[in-house]
Nucleic acid binder design. Structure first.
Lengths: 197, 197
DNA sequence: CGGACCGTTGAAAGGTGTCAAGTTGCGTGG
DNA sequence: CCACGCAACTTGACACCTTTCAACGGTCCG
């Protein structure tokens, strides 16, 4: 199953009929408030599962950030398969536990970190998630736009832009292009991520 | 295993040797920044599990909020037991998925809701989690102190206090005592929780 | 009675949001 | 090939919500 950039894969509230496995590209997972405020709860890349949460309806929405392909399974057969395969269920528990740990880190970020601390944490986490990352250390690809970073970090587009500028001025990062970033001072970035400045 | 109020059960960074099941009382689970900022990621009550996240070390701390009792299992035997019991593993996956969904709701709260919206959401969620809740609808027990509510909602103690006062003035709630709360206008509370005011 | 802890309230400060105006980058079409 | 136009990004000025700092009252208990 193939998706254009921006295509919706699931919408919050819809009957949860399918489970997905991303084979290529990247997705954003988010929740909305009635007035349109958006919180992106995570980004998914090749290999990740989507739609595992139990329930009749999806409790989040998901869209492709770039051209992507996914495997779609109908929910019931998938559940039956899981029931018959303890190793599969084990893997799902393992992955879900990791997602939960990541979610707890994100709660710390959203609840207690300043704008620059959020951005620093984000830049440090990013390479670890993206399988299509470049190998050079310190070099970070930003596969998402400012608006997506903002909605992931609980900030506005303007604040994201200002924080990146501040980091450039401080010599912590440099940006060859808008979607590419080089960490010039990893140690200082790590300090900021922990609020130690 | 019995715990006094305030007793630490696990500390972030310590080797994860045990898994716990709460049999009585309530726990707070939290993460700290080096300078002491605290984000409470959840409250646990009777029946809940703690320490499922895989890994060598705990990635959070947990303390009793009131006198509590827990069942302690050594990690390795517990894992072996889980491997041999698909129904047990199934239950753990089910619970972890629910926790993840709750975490995603909390990310929306922390990243995008105002102080009064956070409090409204909190007051609506609270009864569902506490097995020791009173039966009367609209009546909510606050088993935690202001500081814990603040660190759960990403606010300060003062803001929590001010928001509760505002809600009282608006006639949405009333408080017979500091730890007991009555929802006078559930509909308005629900509106606030969704940011519809 | 004194002290510690908890909660409430007030005044002022500050970080982030809002609103608005540029600037850059890039694909499209003449 | 160049001009145009749109979308994304940046920057500035100001507003506002929440935090910070401070003082005060209440309750429990030694």
């Amino acid at each position: 199953m193939t998706l254009q950039a921006g295509a919706a894969l699931v919408r919050e509230g819809e009957p949860a009929l399918h489970v997905f496995n991303i084979t290529m590209g990247s997705l954003r997972v988010y929740k909305l408030l009635p007035d349109g405020r958006r919180q992106i709860t995570g980004f998914l890349f090749a290999g990740d599962f989507l739609g595992l949460a139990i329930g009749e309806a999806y409790v989040f929405s998901a869209e492709a950030m770039e051209p992507s392909t996914v495997c779609r399974f109908r929910k019931e057969p998938f559940r039956a398969l899981v029931e018959q395969s303890p190793p599969l269920e084990h893997m799902l528990l393992h992955r879900t536990s990791h997602e939960l740990a990541a979610a707890q880190n994100q709660m710390l970020l959203l609840g207690r970190k300043t704008a620059i601390e959020r951005m620093a944490s984000f830049l440090l986490d990013l390479p670890g998630h993206d399988p299509a990352r470049p190998s050079a250390p310190g070099q970070v690809r930003l596969p998402m736009k400012r608006g997506e970073i903002a909605d992931y970090l609980g900030l506005t587009i303007e604040t994201v832009s200002r924080v990146l500028t501040r980091m450039k001025v401080m010599g912590i990062i440099s940006m060859p292009s808008q979607n590419e970033l080089i960490v010039e001072r990893p140690a200082r970035l790590r300090q900021h991520a922990l609020g130690e400045v």
